[in-house]
Amino acid sequence: MSQNFTEVTSVSLLCDSVATLKFRYCKIIHMNNIGKNMFDIGYMDMLAEGDSFLHRLNPGAKLITTMAFIITVVSFDKYSVSALTPFFVYPLVLIAVGGLPAGYLLKKILFVSPFAVFIGIFNPLIDREVIFHLGSIGISGGWISFMSVIMRFALTVSSALILVALTGFNTVCESLLKFGVPKPFIVQLMFFNRYMLIFTDEAGRVVRARSLRSFSKGAAGLGIFASLAGHLLLRTIDRAERIYRAMCCRGFDGRIHIIRKTKTGYREIVFVFGWIILFVLMRYYNLSLKLGGLVTGMSR
């Protein structure tokens, strides 16, 4: 949030002197754009309205396959890089068959990539033992494990994003419910999905109101930030109260009922078992190495 304040204030300063920057100012101070970038679940839900073979599959089948994929990917040891490479076939096939926008998904992955970078960034400093040479350059174990972290991050995040883009956030939640995830947790997720955009809109209006009256003052101080955050919290509590009242008015008794009829056919079975067999194969046989060996052997 403080970063947003800084952006807003710096752009406000420019606007005071350069009228042509008005467009950019408006573009930046709209915090709902930030909200859209961070939680663009609406667009993901729109993607989920597609009509490909993958869209029509039972959500449970897609959820099981994604879970199996994630578990397999994270089960590799920390120096695995070549063995992970074949796993990219899963997101690539799903993107191609499901007709998903690859560039958009890549942007989403890059947006959250700093988290993965921070997790692995110290590996090259801690683990300096050279474990192989690329020509004359020695590559340390730290760099290999860092690479492995990034690959695993890209694979797991992309598979989760693809699952939501092919199924829809709420349908994923409903499938989780069927697989025994506790209901309060699912209800929280669904409410998060429903109200996140409204919350970011509200936060955006508060930030805009501050920036319009801050003129050439610098970034918001701690006091102002605390006040804005406090106001947002109070508004959120008020809204939660109103939503709860609306629920009570319609007989809410602590349980949320949802009607969904889903079918499981041979297509789901083939999809789940086909992929799981492939994951197991890729887990126990390093296909990259075998393919490399085959190509090298042929060239000899």
Partner: peptide, 20 residues
């Protein structure tokens, strides 16, 4: 926005009926 809290319009209309 305070009154429509379910994932889809259908679910929202059905919410009260299921509770009844």
């Amino acid at each position: 926005d305070d009154q429509l809290f379910m994932p889809t319009v259908f679910d929202d209309v059905a919410f009260g009926l299921l509770n009844l």
